[in-house]
Structures are given as structure tokens and as C-alpha cells.
Design a protein around this nucleic acid. Structure first.
Lengths: 220, 220
DNA sequence: CCTACCGATCGGTAGG
DNA sequence: CCTACCGATCGGTAGG
């Protein structure tokens, strides 16, 4: 109602005298808290199936207050996906800056990604299955960053001297590697007997040497 | 288009006078047409975001008529996922019945799965991202069949004599293989320069031998 | 920071 | 008493 809105404006004017500029110092912290509650909600209900009321309840706040921190459902989605892919880019940059030999570089990259994945299962599912709900410009921002990550992996794989004749298959081979690590979100559990760290080694071994003993293959 | 296919089904209907009792002979054909329209809709909008009105429009029928063929949205979802995983089980059985030597059996399995994937992109996405929306009993039916497929792959991988010390990692290694082929749904396009058939060979090669030349690795 | 609401659309069903 | 089918609208709930 306009009466309530008017009253709210007057209260804001009064507060403006005491706190003349900027957002509350806790504003960004609140947004982070909302984001961390939103990621698992979007992951398990799907973006379309998750409601803002449900999110507000999960955060212990009202829906109008939720809209005070985020202008809309899509902005939440963008921040989750964009923030997550930013962290992945950062990991590739940090590993690159260590100037490791090719195979060590490769293994470290897999290891650091699995370490990140272990604590970002919800964000990863949102990135994989909900980015399509973003409007074009936001979606393209996220997808461009995804391509940056893929390109860096492809570059590192290129330094490993892949088998002859596979140079034009650089991208498919890179995507096969991503399949190996990204598919863990459908089956690997942090509380299981096989750890994310174990998986990093197994994936690196299979990608570099295959899953089958060369000795047994000599007789086949 | 599936909408056209559905309309074609309707044109072949006989009148009530000719078919006095039971379901219309085209009833199952109509259901199949609806299913084929629903799969891409669920895949791109997500189960929660896809509406029954939209589906009815895509099929060229009214919503009440849609409900004549399917009692609810969830039944559609179940039929898509269940029918698809049934086909995957059938593929494993057909390949097994050929009694091929281990490596040929393995390569044939990958090849046949990629061949199926090429024409079932929507169904696969529904299976991966929408099965969680099913009620417990239907979801467990589908998940049990998924496990059957995984078990058969694990069995075949077991015949390949994997590297020593990896026997307790049979399931993780199998899931890594599924990652390699299933992740294609996020990036491989049927109209691209790399075909699904190409991918089958590349995946088999990497899984069996690794992506990197053993010769180059001797010097690392 | 809340209750109270809106325009629209949801999944599903009424009468005929 | 059955299936096939439509225009209109139900009770609730979505995002805002």
C-alpha cells in the first residue's frame, strides 16, 4: 500500500541522517548467506521448482526482505554460477603460476579441482543444470568463463604430448576429461569410502595411462 | 516434428462404431507421440518449469485431451525415464548375447551406447536431471534399472583385467567411464565435425590406453 | 522488517 | 456405459 510505502520512506529519511551513505556493513554478508542457502535449494528442486518463499524460510527471513538483498530469482542464480566459475578460473591461474612440469601440472590441476568440487556440490549442479535459465547476457558471461577453464585444461593437456594424430581432437579429449571429473556429482559422496582425493589420482591415472594393464593387453 | 507425428496419429483413428470397446487402437501411438514431445520440453525447461499447457500446445491438442492420455505430469516423466533406461538395458543384453572377446565386447558396448545417445539427447537429460522429481517408488524403479546398467558395465570392465590393486575401485572406475560418455550431453552436437561414432572410439582408446603417448611418458 | 496483497499462470477437472 | 474431445474454469500458488 502507498501508505506503508510512504511511512517506510519517512523512516528511511530519518535513518539517512544517522547513516548518510552506503549499504549496511553486513549487507554483503547477508547476500553471501542467502547465496549459500540458495545453491542447495536450486540444486535439489531445480531453478524453476525452487520458490523464493522457500528460500526466505530457509534463511529465516521474510520474502520481502529477501527481495531487499536480491532483486530477483535470476540474480541469485547468476551470482551462484558466476562466483563458482570465477573460483575455478582462479584455481587454474594459481596452478599455472607454480610453473610445474607438464604431468605434475596436469595432476595438480585435477587434484585442486576435485578439492574444490568436494565443497561445491550444490554450486556445481546449479552451473550444470540451471545456467540455461539465465537471460542471454548473463548466460554468455558465465559460458565465456567456462570456456576459459576448458581452454586452460586443453592447453595443459597439449603440453603432455598426446598420441600422434589426436591434435585436432584436443577439445573432445579435454571434454572427456571434464566428463570424468564432473560426472562425480551424480554419484560420488563426501562420506563414502572413496574420497575426492582418491578420485583425483584415479582420474589422472586413467587419463594418462588407461584403466587397463598394458601387460594384459599384449596378449589380447 | 513430434507435433506433426501426433497429428498424423490422430488422422488414422477409427470411429467408435468400428471400434466399439476397449482402448482406441491408436491410444498407445498417441501416448508415444506425447512422450516424444514431452522429452525435449522437460529437457530444456526442466520438469518443474515445463507446463502441461505448453506440452498440449506442442502436441496440437487441448489440455483435457492430454490428460486423457496421461493422468499427470509425473506419469509422463516416469515413462520417459523408464522407457529410456529400458532401452539401455536392452542394449547391454544384446551386446552380451553376441559373446564377444573382452575388449571387443567393451568397445561394442561403448559404440552402441553412443549410437543410442545420439538419438536420445532429450531423454538422457531428463534421466539425469529430472528423475529426482519422481515419487519414491517410481524413482526407485528407475534407479534400480540404472544400477543394472552400471553393474553390467562393471562386469565387462572386470573381464579386461584392470591394473593390479584396482579391484576394489571397480565401481569408481566404471563411473569414470560413464562420465566420459554421459558428459557428451553437455557439449557434443550431432551436427558437429566430431561424430558420436568418433567419440566412441576416442573414449574406448582413452579408457583402455590413456590419452597420452606412452613413448613421450618414458622421458618425463 | 512484516502482513497483505496483485496479475498470471500452474496442474488438473468440471459439465456437456 | 464406454471413449473421445472441447470451452471454460476450478482451487492453490508462483514471482513480485
Amino acid at each position: 500500500m502507498s501508505g506503508n510505502a510512504f511511512a517506510a520512506c519517512r523512516r528511511t529519511q530519518k535513518t539517512a541522517l544517522e547513516m548518510p551513505r552506503g549499504k549496511s556493513p553486513t549487507f554483503e554478508l547477508q547476500r553471501t548467506g542467502i547465496l549459500q542457502a540458495a545453491a542447495p535449494l536450486f540444486a535439489e528442486r531445480g531453478f524453476a521448482g525452487a520458490s523464493m518463499s522457500e528460500l526466505a524460510n530457509a534463511c529465516g527471513i521474510s520474502k520481502p526482505l529477501l527481495y531487499h538483498y536480491y532483486d530477483g530469482k535470476e540474480d541469485l542464480l547468476f551470482d551462484i554460477a558466476n562466483g563458482y566459475v570465477d573460483r575455478l578460473i582462479k584455481i587454474t591461474a594459481q596452478v599455472r603460476d607454480r610453473h610445474l612440469p607438464p604431468e605434475t601440472h596436469f595432476r595438480t590441476l585435477i587434484e585442486q579441482f576435485m578439492r574444490e568440487y568436494e565443497h561445491a556440490q550444490a554450486q556445481h549442479m546449479v552451473l550444470v543444470q540451471d545456467v540455461k535459465f539465465l537471460k542471454t547476457s548473463q548466460r554468455e558471461t558465465v559460458e565465456a568463463k567456462e570456456r576459459q577453464v576448458v581452454d586452460e585444461f586443453a592447453r595443459v593437456i597439449g603440453t603432455l604430448k598426446p598420441r600422434v594424430g589426436k591434435r585436432k581432437l584436443r577439445v573432445p579429449i579435454t571434454m572427456i576429461l571434464f566428463g570424468m571429473i564432473n560426472w562425480t556429482f551424480t554419484w560420488l559422496r563426501a562420506d563414502g569410502s572413496v574420497t575426492y582425493s582418491d578420485m583425483a589420482d584415479i582420474v589422472s591415472d586413467i587419463f594418462l595411462n588407461g584403466a587397463v594393464s598394458p601387460r594384459s593387453r599384449e596378449h589380447s
